[in-house]
Design a protein around this nucleic acid. Sequence first.
DNA 1: CCGACCCGTTCGCTGTTCAGAAACAGAATG
DNA 2: CATTCTGTTTCTGAACAGCGAACGGGTCGG
Lengths: 262, 262
Amino acid sequence: MDWKSGGTDPESEGATIKSIDTSFAVVTALRDRNGAGVTELAEATDLSKSSVHKHLRSLMKHDVVVKEREEYRLGLRYLELGAHVRAQVPGATEIKHKLRELATETGESAQFAVEERGQAVVLFREVSHGGVYSRGREGRRFYMHQTAAGKAILSQYPDQWVREVLDRHGLPKATDHTVDDEEALFAELDEIREAGVAFNSEESTAGLRSVGVPVTDADGDVLGAFAVAGPIHRFEGARFETELPNVVRSVVNELELNLAYS
Amino acid sequence: MDWKSGGTDPESEGATIKSIDTSFAVVTALRDRNGAGVTELAEATDLSKSSVHKHLRSLMKHDVVVKEREEYRLGLRYLELGAHVRAQVPGATEIKHKLRELATETGESAQFAVEERGQAVVLFREVSHGGVYSRGREGRRFYMHQTAAGKAILSQYPDQWVREVLDRHGLPKATDHTVDDEEALFAELDEIREAGVAFNSEESTAGLRSVGVPVTDADGDVLGAFAVAGPIHRFEGARFETELPNVVRSVVNELELNLAYS
DNA sequence: CCGACCCGTTCGCTGTTCAGAAACAGAATG
DNA sequence: CATTCTGTTTCTGAACAGCGAACGGGTCGG
């Protein structure tokens, strides 16, 4: 029942601190409408104005909320924390470097994603001229089975881990092309393992395709995955099936060598 | 007594929610040692193990803390929130674009900073080949008077606002070169206003110089400031005093034009 | 092989304190 | 000028955060 041989099943939630839950409710409401007043937030969260107010004051104390022009909005402290956790990832600098190389070399948007709690999280992202595909801003979470990077990562996991991911999140469909059959997914993971490349053809977003390759460290443990994504009209034929996979693979190869010697 | 004609004086802290304070204490302790156990955190925060545990569980529920390999560390949810607040800044895309242009054009590290709660916060950062100056990761906060970007921003503020910043934070010294005299600062802000450029010569870090230029929107309100920074041996003579200022100014000019038409 | 120890976790209890209702102040609206 | 929005403060009771102690599992050392 353990997750990666350590950790508690997150579904079995014991007692949590209610104030924290409500604080996050306020923060979430604030994020969704970025910038709001006390009354609006009170309605959105089903709390009393006084409670919201007190929470906002507490959050302000820690710079995660600021008041500007008579309205509250999220502060930049989150940026500091976000940058911090990202910097802790081993090889962050090299990864970012190689990612940019990949983006300029292909002329497409590229991203590096890692797995957390059974989902794929975009850690770095490089957009190239043409590709203003807003999908996949840094920090965004995806289902593993809906993206090329996610499947690339899964392909390096033992079946047991993959199954735990499925137990936790299932195989929700985002488009008609999303794999929603467990058998089919495992078969695809086999192919990915053999080819060293994962494909995503409109499985998360209509019109969007991507190519992903897992990144492993010197011990063979998977760190995450690189992926390039773009519109279907540029991702087809030999470019989609051969050229881009080769480019991504070779960039990842170089990265892995760099990571081994550092 | 108001801050920017709206807002409460942050010094006058009313009653805050204690649970939130302790949660932040846990998060901070976790950040400072990135990755720790319950007992260690309990000692660091002067709380009981059970309290720390309950807080951790609550924080895990919201993905800001994750348990991995029998130890707790900060999760990637902060990355999402950080990326979100940054994306809300008007013209974020254009700013990032121009910032990269500035970095490649000068071959130095460049950054875009905004003011929040009287401090300068680095929003975007571009490092060039040579400049692995780790100073100024995204989200990092600086005193306004200790950086070129901060002084550039202050130069566009009415005296009243500047004085409010000083009231709140004072003029703490970071090095021997830091301006710690109010008169001198205002005189320097005058010069900056005239020249359109702010300089920082080892005022925050020994051996580090930088050149900053304020960025204003179509209404003339200051959005933030661009700055290039580098080692003193590359930042001297005509390059420091004339060339770099001209490059930064022209890049900012182009940016302001782009922002006006969007 | 076994005992001592350290860790994370759980369980009740108690005093603290968070949440809500209502009143207050101030600005904008008509 | 009255009304009706804001955001803010006050106060009180019921909820709950925090602690100590006990539990269970793992590892270390003898």
